[in-house]
Amino acid sequence: MTKEEFLTVSNVCKAFGTGDSRQEVLRGMDFTVAKGEFCVLLGPSGSGKSTLLNIIGGIDSADDGYISIAGDKLRDMNEKMLTRYRRKHLGYVFQLYNLIPNLNVKENIEVGAYLSDKPLDIDELLNTLGLWDHRYKLPNQLSGGQQQRTSIGRAIVKNPDILLCDEPTGALDYNTSKEILKLIEDVNQKYGNTIIMVTHNAEISKMADHTIKLRDGKVRKNIVNDNKISAVELEW
């Protein structure tokens, strides 16, 4: 069965700086991601994976090439349209959770729900995230894993088409990282969102449908994983 192409990255180039200090971060990237796919962007530091994620997220722009989502090219959108695009289609999860310190868990998730006309049921989501008992706690009363769960909740409560995860386990210990990965896997299966996760941990690619290996701003390998394993089975 061929999956529907949802996200297209076509010849995307990006450089920073000028003159001698100019540094090309992306040098013509090409790949596609299907709807509902769990895609991992894998690469070492400086390979351009976060930059690419930011361009897909519409918070940075490509110097050349384009990104299209469901046929809409981001480069044709002005700032207002990009905001609307992010509002409607995207959920973001960062390495540092960036929760609002004086809102409790439930309220932080409501911040995401506010953006959607048809948000997921927050109570049900809290249960799914394992945060029901902590829903009235402030971020500083939570562990790193709980905070990351909250930030995932905030990202997916609006049921986005794409969930962008930038090193979501980068600041977590081994066990908590696995819990978070399991949660993302569950979310992907339960809600069918397309997930694009940036990581430098090669082990994580084993749970993905699709892995894009990046180095020096180029796609080195584009692997479709026919034998993916569950997050709980990952080891590193």
Partner: peptide, 16 residues
Amino acid sequence: KEAAVIGTLRSTGYTR
């Protein structure tokens, strides 16, 4: 102080 939070909110679609 809240720069990162603002960045996150803006990236998830909060308008300026």
